[in-house]
Amino acid sequence: MNLWLRNFLLLILMLAASGLALALRPTQKIADQGPAIDLETIIPTTFGDWHVEQQNSVQIVDPRQKEMIDKIYTQTLSRTYINSRGYRVMLSIAYGDDQRDSMQMHYPEICYPAQGFLLEGKEAGNLATGSGSIPVTRILTSLGQRNEPVTYWTIVGDRVFQGGLQKKLAEMRYGMTGKIPDGMLIRISSIDGETANAYDIQTQFADQMLHALEPEYRRKLNGNARIN
């Protein structure tokens, strides 16, 4: 094969690969197809035995972390709820309408140590709710005398995933259909020296919160949880 013909074939192959990549590039946002997401409106301020505590000084906010989160996510919600026994639970939800590689989620096991917390434990678990079982991650953090167990789960599109590999596979599945998935991270935590007690109460809190949501938003937050 002479040089001219070889270069010509290489050019054809390069153009074909470029055209295929362009054709497979996701262009349709899932966020534009479902119900509009407005976290302040979707999540009620009162549900079950819980109501928002209007004034509190429990949460620690690092301005640098907040700036990073604001760049990654379209919306964020941060509230502290209190029940009739005076127990406080912190809820943080971050939503991004474009959850591709360029918009990576900011995981608690990364952002807590970045604010000076010690990461003392991490395990996968399942959150049993009336609307199904949700795969979650639980981490134990501390800052001085402050012991803060955390439960969180992450969603890409309409499914909960655990770990970077599952997230990548979910993104690829959507990408092959020309869709850009949205994503959400729901984090629940409390300051409690009794870790098991904290996780039990966080489960109750999540169950009551999800029960209070409209069905289409419940499905969005629980990632179509498995019904046991």
Rank of each mutant, 00 (worst) to 15 (best):
T151W: 00
Y152R: 02
W153F: 07
I155P: 09
I155C: 07
I155Y: 08
V156S: 10
G157V: 05
D158T: 01
R159Y: 01
F161R: 10
Q162C: 08
Q162M: 11
G163L: 12
G163C: 09
G163H: 11
G164S: 11
G164T: 10
G164I: 11
L165N: 03
L165K: 08
L165F: 10
Q166V: 09
Q166E: 08
K167S: 08
K167Y: 03
K168Q: 15
L169S: 15
L169P: 10
A170P: 06
A170M: 15
E171V: 15
M172R: 13
M172L: 13
R173M: 09
R173K: 12
Y174W: 06
Y174N: 04
G175W: 00
G175A: 04
G175S: 05
M176E: 04
M176K: 05
M176W: 05
T177K: 06
K179H: 01
K179F: 01
G183H: 05
G183P: 07
M184D: 06
M184K: 04
L185W: 10
L185T: 14
I186T: 14
R187H: 13
R187G: 12
R187T: 13
I188F: 13
I188V: 15
S189W: 12
S190L: 10
S190R: 14
I191S: 15
D192M: 14
G193C: 11
G193A: 14
E194K: 14
T195H: 10
T195S: 12
N197G: 08
N197C: 05
N197M: 11
A198G: 02
A198Q: 00
Y199S: 04
Y199P: 02
Y199M: 04
D200Q: 07
D200G: 06
Q204D: 11
F205K: 05
F205V: 06
A206R: 04
M209D: 12
M209P: 15
H211K: 05
A212T: 00
A212F: 01
L213H: 00
